Simulated scan of single mutants.
Amino acid sequence: MIKKTLYFGNPVYLSTRNEQLVINFPDAQGLDNDSGKNTIPIEDIGIVITDHKQITITHSLIQKLLANNCAIVTCDNSHMPHGLLLTLNGNSVQTERYEQQINASIPLKKQLWQQTIKCKISNQSTLLSRLRGIRTDNMQHWASRVTSGDSENHEARAAAFYWANFFPINNFKRGRDEEPPNNLLNYGYAILRAIIARALVSSGLMPTLGIHHHNRYNAYCLADDVMEPYRPFVDKIVYDIVDSGLDYTQLSKEIKWQLLSIPQTDVLINDKRSPLMIAASQTTASLHNCFEGSSRKIAYPKFTES
């Protein structure tokens, strides 16, 4: 079953009772308008996003959410995801899996990164061709030429071509601090990062210890590695928002609502359709198999036929 993603952008008091998340709106504007209280089974929740200074969440609720492997995301003053809280006990054999991950050889990591970048470029190529009708023979060639560790940096070549042609916007430049719709991409990638990090913890892996990213200040290097082939699925949602004519210069409630659909986005993985959140768990489970030595291939998603 796919877990729910809950977003709170107004003052609210969040607590727990009988293994339920209890939502208490001070102005009684919730689903239960008589009491202002709503309840949701904690076991059904995958991600909670808090985006208001006047949100109160009890320690008991945090404890129960983490015990059920829920990712808690907090937003900053600009309403962008800023903090991520995950459980430290995501798997019953976590110590053993940590050791396997730590002891992974450099050649294995390079091969895993090769698979990761090949899939990322392939997904970018598919999306660019479908949405913009652009020939992507060059991207397909770059994908086929990615070597162990991507030593020739085909990822950067593909990214330059991809972003130069993706949006029907003059002089668009991809960058965290660049002009919109980069704000939408940043928000969507932050949600995606939380999904991947949650899946990694559930598979007994450390999100910090990457196969390619090694920034000493980054607590989620492995999440940033694994999410690379998933990024085009976020790009697709952002493209549709831009194409719809909505004002994408601001993160409105309507736009956030569409970006919060990322976990439910259909992908193709292991030749089967699956919601992105479920696919992320399959990817991280297959990554563990690689660290364990029972497999040499990561299961990554592709776009469905329609």
Rank of each mutant, 00 (worst) to 15 (best):
G175P: 05
I117R: 01
Q115N: 01
S105G: 01
Y187P: 02
T95E: 09
D177C: 13
L127W: 06
L185M: 07
R174G: 00
M139L: 15
S105M: 01
Q100M: 08
N183T: 09
I106G: 08
W113P: 05
P107N: 08
S144V: 10
N153S: 09
S125I: 07
S122L: 13
N183I: 07
W163V: 02
K120M: 06
N153T: 04
L185Y: 03
N103H: 04
C119L: 12
C119P: 08
I121W: 03
Y98I: 02
V93K: 12
P180H: 09
P181T: 03
D137T: 12
H141Q: 14
S92L: 11
N165S: 12
A143P: 10
G188A: 05
D150N: 04
I102A: 03
Q101W: 05
E155W: 03
K109D: 08
P180E: 04
R130A: 12
E152P: 11
F166A: 02
N170F: 13
N165V: 08
A160V: 13
S122G: 14
S144W: 07
N183A: 02
R174E: 07
N183H: 08
Q140T: 14
P181D: 06
I134P: 06
N138A: 15
P180L: 07
G149S: 10
L128D: 04
A158S: 11
F167E: 06
W163C: 01
Q111C: 13
T136P: 07
N170D: 14
S125G: 10
A104E: 00
T116F: 06
E99A: 09
S148T: 12
A159D: 06
R135T: 15
S125T: 11
A156P: 06
K120H: 03
Q114H: 10
I169R: 00
A164V: 09
E179G: 12
D150Q: 05
S105N: 07
D137C: 01
I106V: 14
N123Y: 03
L127F: 00
L128M: 06
Q114S: 09
E178I: 09
R176L: 11
M139S: 11
K120G: 09
A158T: 03
Y162C: 00
A104N: 03
N153Y: 06
R97S: 00
